[in-house]
């Protein structure tokens, strides 16, 4: 395997409101190109914070985060260029409500990638077809269902041709019947070799798609391993306890 595309070394993150909280405590981890890593853990374990540090939506207070060879904690790095290479999908979709589905997909392509309108729209339509909602291209986000919105959000990130995709609990805000359609899109992506880091509570997805599962608790990675091993033979007591509660 080539060099890791994500290399995180001993990062720490503090929150000061309302009181000092160590959200991440010397977390280290690497992700290889094409790998699918699923992060699970109880709420407040720091898994979302960790994910948000990877594209600097949260600025880690210590350590190093090297994305594709560039240390993003270096103040001199061009973070916008790196973010364009790292797609992110949010729990609450965060589509732009004043724009149509198509415009949601073309806006960043045109402003950041400098593509022409024609080029951006062609790319957008290909991706909308891929996620199965090409017929909704003219709709506003509030006119389509949650599952459709999340698929648009995934397509919006993919339109930038990212090297890495981050998923922050992408199915947690969805009605149960819509979870499947979003997971299907993510499975297709994984099969196509996209590097993915996924924070989720969907154990079925983790078991089926993940190359590696990380278990986080209290700002630390307690245990990691392939899903076959992780779900059947967890080593750590806390992992066993967590798994027994959710499975």
């Amino acid at each position: 395997m080539s060099a890791p595309i994500i290399d995180v070394r001993n990062i720490e993150k503090y929150f000061y409101t309302p009181e000092e909280l160590k959200a991440l405590n010397r977390v280290s981890c690497t992700v290889d190109p094409g790998e699918v890593v699923v992060i699970i853990g109880p709420s407040g374990s720091g898994k979302s914070t960790f994910l948000r540090c990877l594209n600097r939506l949260e600025y880690a207070d210590a350590g190093e985060i090297i994305i594709d060879g560039i240390n993003i904690l270096d103040p001199k790095c061009n973070i916008n260029a790196i973010r364009a290479e790292v797609g992110m999908v949010f729990q609450s979709f965060n589509l732009f409500p004043h724009k149509t589905v198509l415009e949601n997909l073309t806006m960043a392509q045109m402003t950041v990638r400098g593509r022409s309108k024609k080029e951006a729209e062609d790319k957008a339509m290909v991706l909308l077809k891929k996620v199965g909602i090409a017929d909704k291209f003219a709709a506003k986000p509030d006119q389509i269902s949650g599952g459709q919105q999340q698929r648009v959000a995934i397509a919006r990130s993919l339109a930038m041709n990212p090297k890495i995709m981050l998923f922050d609990e992408p199915t947690s805000a969805l009605d149960p019947e819509m979870v499947g359609e979003v997971l299907d899109v993510m499975k297709t992506l994984a099969r196509e070799g996209m590097t993915m880091v996924v924070v989720t509570h969907e154990m079925g997805f983790a078991r089926e798609v993940a190359d590696r599962v990380l278990f986080m608790d209290k700002g630390e990675i307690l245990e990691q391993g392939p899903p076959s091993h992780f779900f059947t033979n967890p080593v750590h007591e806390r992992t066993k306890e967590f798994l027994s509660q959710i499975l």
């Binding site: 260029a81 973010r83 992110m88 949010f90 919006r156």
Partner: peptide, 26 residues
Amino acid sequence: HRGQMEAARSLGMNYAQAMRKVILPQ
């Protein structure tokens, strides 16, 4: 909503672009 700025920035837009195209119109 804060998520609008985060979404725009996560796509690689800079502050001014995100403000002009995403935040201010809303």
